[in-house]
Write a protein that binds this DNA or RNA. Structure first.
Lengths: 127, 127
DNA sequence: CAGCATCCACGCGGATACTG
DNA sequence: CAGTATCCGCGTGGATGCTG
């Protein structure tokens, strides 16, 4: 019943507030501050370690990075591979599912880049 | 300097935390609870009035709907047309900019519909 | 190195009541 | 009809310090 074959927006609107809806999950993941950035960095670099994320992403804290990675893993979008060595080594990669999400997200980001001026101008006007 | 022609993710990662970045603005808009639903409903219905949104969208409050519409207007994604009659009549439509955002978002929503099972299963596993 | 623990501030979203 | 006004709870994100 929650297979969500009914993908007309009008249908979705009637149960959108139920937080279990996967559409909400995906959109929330996209909207949370860092998830999509992590996803796209993985798409660009293939394999990334924790401290590499920390270096690449300016302004993120370790806790938030940790949470972001954990949630992405829970949602099946990234893999976490731990090497049993000292000092510890952990590598993150995209899953197949995560890889599939990259193109649509990239399209969106490209759109944002192209129309940044329009949006910022509109904001200026309405200030 | 904030023209954001540099659209490699690695570049974006270095200034992503600055909230003025339009990429963040767009992703936030997508991530906030109702904006994309409103956008897609407009894409499906063309013109929608305030109380029609209220009826179509289950679980939204008037205040939140009002805020959502206001922000979308500020960002230049929707138009607000007021008819000077009693009782008041206000119609919302997509702008050109907003119309352009629809296809990428729709792609994302379709992806979410198609892979909802995968995500929910993965969540189950990791609970 | 790759994190967890703790504490805190802020803002979003929700509920309810009121108005031009 | 199409909103505003007010109040409130909660969760996200941030800062700092500690650990296997």
């Amino acid at each position: 019943m929650d297979t969500e074959k009914s993908c007309t927006i009008t249908e979705i609107a009637k149960c959108y507030h139920k937080s279990e809806r996967s559409i909400r999950i995906v959109l929330e993941r996209i909207g949370d501050k860092w998830s999509m950035l992590v996803l796209l960095l993985l798409a660009e670099h293939g394999t990334v370690r924790f401290h590499e994320f920390d270096n690449m992403i300016d302004g993120i804290s370790q806790k938030v990075l940790s949470n972001t990675l954990k949630t992405l893993e829970t949602d099946g979008l990234i893999n976490r591979k731990v090497y049993p060595v000292v000092p510890p080594k952990v590598e993150y990669t995209l899953t197949e599912l995560g890889t599939g999400l990259v193109p649509p997200v990239k399209t969106l980001v490209d759109w944002a880049c192209m129309h940044s001026k329009d949006i910022l101008e509109s904001r200026q006007k309405h200030l």
